[in-house]
Amino acid sequence: MDQLTQLATRINFKQYVVYIGFLLIFLFFAIVLKDDGFLSTRNLTNIILQTAPITIMAIGLVFVLSAGEIDLSFGSIVAVSALVAAVVMNEHSMILGILAGLGSGLAIGLFNGLLVAYLRLPSFLVTLATMGLFAGVARMLTDLRSVPVLNSTFTGIFGSGSLFGIPSLIYWTVGAVALGHFVFRETKYGAHVLALGDNARAASVSGIKILRMRLSVLMLSGFCAALAGLLYAGRLQGARYTLGEADLMTVIAAVIVGGTLLTGGKGTIIGALAGSLLMGMLNNGLILMGLSVSDQMVVRGFIILIAVALSLRDTNH
């Protein structure tokens, strides 16, 4: 018995809550919706495609939260970059459009980062303000008009195409998660991010350039949001000022349910991927169950609440 307890302590079930929750919900939908196509390859692929931009944004947010900061502005960055990319692409070339889209995300991230790192303003307030600021910019850019993206190479690479029968969004998801996981877990940069989030003073004493780190994680988040914006533009074959607006809470929920701490010092990219897929699966399964929209919202809220409660229980933070 003692051995079992010891084993349980060592395994630390909390760490796996998101995976266990993911499996339980998957099994639930697989049984309840077995005649409704939930398990069809097309539906399971849909879930991954639909969550690809969420996953990419979640990767950026894992770095920011692990460093002890927060970014609330990424939804607005999505819209700005998608619109900038679409406009530049239509007037110049695809390459310039992509560079301009990603560049605008980096630039907004830099703006956030400079205010947080060098003016020592709290990231919560800075990004709360820039969220509104750049949502306004997105509206101004094209005067609320949607911009079509007609370049088939672009839409093929970013969202609508496939290679060897596998949709491009799956490559983006797998590539971004693999790269994010590697940088987060295997490089000095990832270790420094965690050290900063765990104890900024100790990190500073040990020689980590904490201001530069704060700047860099917010730029990384801006870049990820911009990439998500390009994926939306490719998938929808157009850009619109509302893109990303509704994603803030979904991405934060995915990251937290996945096991990243809001207070910094602990994060996981694979967990964020599982959290993101969990969110997508909930949306998908609850619609397939034929629930009314209000019922879907209530059930989704309860499940997220349970997942968050389980993954955060017993922490001393």
Partner: peptide, 26 residues
Amino acid sequence: KVVATASAGFDAAKQRSDIETALIKN
């Protein structure tokens, strides 16, 4: 029979996802 109901909350991306999900039920 109504087999699926969804609300996109003014989000064009969610609307696309809702359509894809609903199409699973033909």
